[in-house]
Simulated scan of single mutants.
Amino acid sequence: MKILVPATSANLGPGFDALGLAVKLYNVVNIQEAKFSSVSISGEGSDNISLKRNNLFISVFNEIFKELVSSSANFRMVFENNIPFSRGLGSSSAVIISAIASAYAMAGFKVDKHTILNKALIYENHPDNITPAVFGGFISAIVSNNVVHFSKSEISDDIRAVVVIPDKPMNTNQSREILPKSYTLKECVNNISHAAFLATCFLQKKYDMLRLASFDMLHEDRRMVALPELFDVRKIAYENAALMSCLSGSGSTFLNIVYKNDAINLKTKLSNKFQNFKVEIFDFDNDGFKLLQS
């Protein structure tokens, strides 16, 4: 079998740990039963020999598979890692979702997306990343009693993601340590109101209002200080027709949303200015992970 899981962008400005979306950049895993277990990796992490032993996918897969069938088995696993590590594009969520879903499939169980999503909470407690990885689209999500509850809106083909991926990673845990332990009432009210408004903009496809809706006061500017070039990314994006421009997850990637006719121009401007950064245009993913017969 083959599984494809999309990259995700979480927070989206004011929607801290609550809002996220999926883009058409996929990690791909091929799995087949074998006499001996083996691992092959291409793309991200291919030069890291230890990943073949200390691999999050394999540990989660084996744990879930054994839980389902009360035994272990040997598999050949071939990883095509296209989602960058530690860049705020949901690489760990993609690994966890693909491991759980493929364990269910290889154990002969129906792969129910709601089951996969709630199993993923054991390993990743950020619903803004795991939910769009499972279901695609734009997601507003909460967790109550260890269950993810969410609202999904499909994203129009009229818009694109122009993604700026710096050559420097940002560790999520370290990035959270930068943030204060308490916030002012003004900061909290700003983010509650803007996150609510941002969600309605996606749900009603009022994309022209995204710039206003995406203003954050809790985390973005504080995190961007670690990589000051990101302030210029946002400035240039807004000068070149970006509908919104925000830190992707905890960074270092920056997500810019534009109408599709403006995407190439924005990519060109950003590529010319930030030659050490990778700039890509992606469609949005409205489906979430896909299981295929390989």
Rank of each mutant, 00 (worst) to 15 (best):
S93P: 03
S93A: 15
S93Y: 01
A94Q: 04
V95S: 15
V95P: 00
V95H: 00
I96V: 14
I96T: 06
I96W: 02
I96N: 01
I97S: 03
I97W: 05
I97F: 05
I97D: 04
S98F: 04
S98M: 10
A99I: 14
A99R: 08
I100E: 02
I100G: 03
I100Q: 01
A101R: 01
S102K: 06
S102R: 04
A103C: 13
Y104F: 15
Y104K: 11
A105N: 13
A105M: 07
M106F: 12
M106G: 02
M106P: 00
A107V: 08
A107T: 07
G108W: 12
G108E: 07
F109G: 01
K110S: 07
K110W: 03
V111H: 00
D112N: 15
D112F: 10
K113L: 06
K113R: 15
H114E: 14
H114I: 14
H114Q: 12
T115A: 09
N118M: 09
K119T: 06
K119Q: 12
K119G: 00
A120D: 10
I122S: 11
I122V: 10
I122G: 02
I122H: 09
I122C: 02
Y123R: 13
Y123G: 07
Y123F: 15
Y123L: 07
E124H: 11
E124D: 14
E124W: 05
E124Y: 07
E124F: 03
N125P: 08
N125Y: 14
N125W: 03
H126V: 05
P127R: 05
P127K: 08
D128G: 02
N129M: 08
N129A: 09
I130P: 01
I130K: 00
I130H: 02
T131L: 07
P132K: 12
P132L: 12
P132W: 08
A133E: 03
V134T: 04
F135P: 01
F135W: 11
F135D: 03
F135N: 02
F135T: 02
G137H: 04
F138R: 00
I139A: 04
I139H: 01
S140E: 12
A141E: 10
I142G: 07
I142A: 06
V143W: 06
V143P: 06
N145H: 15
N145G: 11
N146F: 08
N146C: 10
N146K: 15
V147K: 10
V147E: 15
V148I: 15
V148F: 10
H149V: 13
H149N: 11
H149P: 01
S151L: 12
K152H: 08
K152P: 09
S153P: 01
S153K: 04
S153Y: 09
S153E: 06
E154H: 09
E154G: 00
E154S: 14
E154C: 05
I155S: 08
I155E: 09
I155N: 04
I155A: 05
S156V: 10
S156M: 13
D157R: 13
D158I: 07
I159Q: 05
I159A: 01
I159N: 04
R160G: 01
R160H: 08
R160N: 15
R160Y: 11
A161V: 12
A161M: 12
A161F: 09
A161D: 05
